[in-house]
Design a protein around this nucleic acid. Structure first.
Length: 256
DNA sequence: ATGTCCCTGATCCAGGGA
C-alpha cells in the first residue's frame, strides 16, 4: 500500500500537475494540503475520472485539505474535535480507508516569530497533540500525515543557522513536534533514513530548487500498529522541477 | 531587505500569506 502527501499550493492552477503525478505514482491514498478553493468547487469529477474517491474540507483563498483514495473513504472528522470558535481554518480531515485511520494535517506556518501567528501555531499544535494522544494507542493502524510546517532537526534544513528565528524551526516548534512524536509515533522518513538530508519543500525564492536549498516539512507519523509495516519512502523531487509546480514535492511511503 | 508565487478585490496593480 502506497500512501502519499502533497501540499499542492492551490488546486486551481495545479489540477493537471496533480493528475499527471497521480497517473505516474499510482498512490492508494493521498493527503492534499493548501487547496485554496471553496468547498463547493472541488474538482471531484476529474479526480473520480482519474480513479480516486475524495473527501475534502475547502475554504476560500487559504488552507484546505483533502484525502483521496482508490478505495472507499469513510469520513471520521472534518476538523480536530472541539468546536472552539478560535479555529476556523480548514486544516484537518480524518478518515478510515482500507484498514487504516488517516489524519491529513496542514499545520499553521506561524511566521513571523514572535507574534500572534506563532502563538496560533503553538495552540493548534497543542490541539493536534490532544487528539493524537487518543489515536496513538488505538488498536488500529493510524497515520497522521501532511505538512507540519516544522523542520524537526538540523538535518531537515540546508542551512540551520538561517532558520533560528523562523517559526518552522523555532525551538518551541521543534519541541512541540518532538512531544507529539514521543507519544509513541514513528517519523517514517527519519526512521528509514536516520542520517540523510531529505527535503520535501524548496522555496520559490532565489532558485532554491536549483541549489537544493530545501526543507523537510512534510511528515508521516505512524502508530505502533502500522510502523512495522513500513518498507520504503520517497520524495518525488522531480515534480518540484515541473513548470509552475507547487513549492512542495509529493512524498510517499510504502507499507507491507 | 531581498527574492517568487498564489490568492483576492478592485484595476491591469496592491496587499496578505507563504
Amino acid at each position: 500500500m502506497k500512501i502519499a502527501t502533497y501540499n499542492i499550493n492551490g488546486i486551481n492552477g495545479r489540477l493537471e500537475h496533480l493528475l499527471r503525478w497521480l497517473r505516474e505514482a499510482q498512490p492508494d491514498i493521498v493527503c492534499l494540503q493548501e487547496l485554496k478553493r471553496e468547498q463547493h468547487s472541488f474538482p471531484e469529477s476529474a479526480l473520480k475520472d482519474a480513479g480516486y474517491n475524495a473527501i475534502w474540507q475547502g475554504q476560500k483563498s487559504w488552507n484546505g485539505v483533502a484525502i483521496l483514495a482508490k478505495n472507499e473513504i469513510r469520513e471520521l472528522h472534518r476538523d480536530l474535535p472541539g468546536d472552539d470558535d478560535e479555529f476556523t481554518h480548514s486544516r484537518y480531515i480524518e478518515a478510515f480507508v482500507d484498514d487504516v485511520v488517516i489524519g491529513c494535517i496542514y499545520l499553521p506556518n506561524g511566521n513571523p516569530w514572535p507574534g500572534p501567528k506563532f502563538d496560533y501555531k503553538l495552540r493548534w499544535f497543542r490541539r493536534l497533540a490532544d487528539h493524537a494522544k487518543g489515536l496513538v494507542n488505538r488498536e488500529l493502524p493510524v497515520l497522521l500525515v501532511g505538512d507540519y510546517n516544522v523542520m524537526p532537526t538540523e538535518l531537515d534544513t540546508y542551512k540551520p543557522a538561517k532558520y533560528l528565528e523562523n517559526a518552522l524551526f523555532r525551538p518551541e516548534s521543534r519541541e512541540a513536534f518532538k512531544k507529539l512524536v514521543d507519544q509513541g509515533w514513528t517519523d517514517a522518513i527519519r526512521d528509514l533514513y536516520p542520517h540523510e538530508r531529505i527535503y520535501t519543500f524548496w522555496d520559490y525564492l532565489r532558485n532554491a530548487y536549483g541549489r537544493n536549498a530545501g526543507l523537510r516539512l512534510d511528515h508521516f507519523l505512524l502508530n505502533k500498529h502500522i510502523a512495522p509495516r513500513l518498507r520504503t519512502a520517497q520524495v518525488d523531487k522531480h515534480v518540484r522541477g515541473w513548470e509552475h509546480s507547487s513549492d512542495h514535492a509529493p512524498v510517499w511511503i510504502e507499507l507491507a
